[in-house]
Write a protein that binds this DNA or RNA. Structure first.
Lengths: 217, 217
DNA sequence: ATTAATTTTTAGACACATCTAAATTATAAA
DNA sequence: TTTATAATTTAGATGTGTCTAAAAATTAAT
């Protein structure tokens, strides 16, 4: 049985693998987990010993299938709880991440599966991220990052990557909510910002924002 | 901010104070928390230093008002979650205690209060135990322990103290469920067992069972 | 290809919550 | 009231997850 800390490492390694499509390095992991590189090294050794990941000194780390299964189970719980909080308890999408980071460590398969039933087997969470099913399978979201869009191209906003409270509040304030139709009007070369249109209103968004928005073309 | 372990000590001290109406002694607490007396001593020192309880060497321990407030907050969460699990997720009353012991440590006042609203401010949990409100106030259950009943006296079963899975399964099997009408038929002096009647069926229950059943006369 | 800068690991320490074994204090019995 | 028993505390140790500082390995730069 894994500790909360071990589960968090595994979850974060999984996320970084997905994002960078490469082995995960110590410093990046330390930054994400908000700890020191030396602590990460210690933990990686421990998880390697438990055969949840492949770790080679100085070469980075990669989950094996056992580790991946655990990551998906934690992610499943996280996203089901987020969905519960928004759909049943009337939380807004910017309030749920931190609470779900606690709830994701509750150990009860019965609870997770009953929650899934209660929510009617949701496929995505309030941020548009796919929810792994009871077997760890998740649907592939057919979404393209806004930075891949051409001028005059438009799409429907269906997934956001950054779940921080401030970022989501910013999006809400500007009507950038799941389901919104976004059209690219202009691109600025010097800072990679875009001018976009939503609900007939036009405004500029920075590269940082652009990189976290995923749309269906 | 308290650790899960600290919260569990405070919760248990509160429960023992209520049950024995006296200061709590080290060995009993150790037994309840399933740890050693020496560990209890260490923890009591720590909690005394945090000013959550009054501790005098060799003399036992008592929560102060700050500690009591924390106990009530944990109990509130525990019982709200139990109610949620039974009423919304279709758990049975014998399955909820262990899961609720995890959920009671989730830190989010917003979550607790929204859960309370969602459940429509329940006054008692699935075992008939009162749920403290947002201010820590709980209704006084007008229940009398079955061991106080005379022969031929009857009452409605409204509260059970022991929440262990096996005990609750035993009760269910014998139709001893919340709301059942129970009549005392006979008392055995030698082992303090009772013969009772429920739903026109008669059977014997041991002192151990009797002490955990509370009824409305 | 050697040096410099960066990344990662090791070594040794600490806080937390626990343990065992020994010492101390309180309580009950003779 | 002294002794025996029981309850409690202290002392010292352990495992987990973290830290700082120093050492080692890797990568980038000249």
């Amino acid at each position: 049985m894994l500790t909360k800390s071990e589960e968090n490492y595994i979850k974060e390694i999984y996320a970084l693998e997905q994002k960078h499509k490469a082995d995960v390095n110590t410093n990046l992991l330390a930054e994400k987990i908000e700890t020191k590189a030396s602590s990460v090294t210690d933990m990686l050794k421990k998880l390697a010993k438990k055969e949840l990941l492949i770790y080679q000194k100085y070469k980075g780390v990669k989950l094996n299938s056992k580790g991946e299964k655990i990551a998906l189970s934690v992610i499943r719980k996280h996203r089901l709880w987020e969905t519960f909080l928004v759909e049943k308890l009337d939380f807004s999408w910017d309030e749920v991440h931190k609470v779900a980071e606690q709830l994701e460590h509750i150990r009860s398969e019965k609870l997770t599966n009953k929650l899934d039933v209660y929510l009617n087997f949701p496929k995505v969470d309030p941020h548009g991220n796919p929810i792994p099913d009871v077997n760890g399978k998740l649907i592939i979201i057919d979404a393209v990052c806004l930075d891949q869009f051409e001028i005059e191209e438009e799409g429907i906003f269906i997934e956001v990557k950054d779940e921080s409270e401030n970022f989501l509040k910013y999006l809400t304030k500007n009507n950038i909510v799941i389901g919104a139709k976004i059209k690219v009007l202009e691109k600025e070369e010097f800072d990679n910002s875009f001018k976009i249109e939503i609900d007939r209103k036009q405004f500029n968004i920075s590269e940082n924002v652009i990189k976290n928005l995923y749309l269906k073309k």
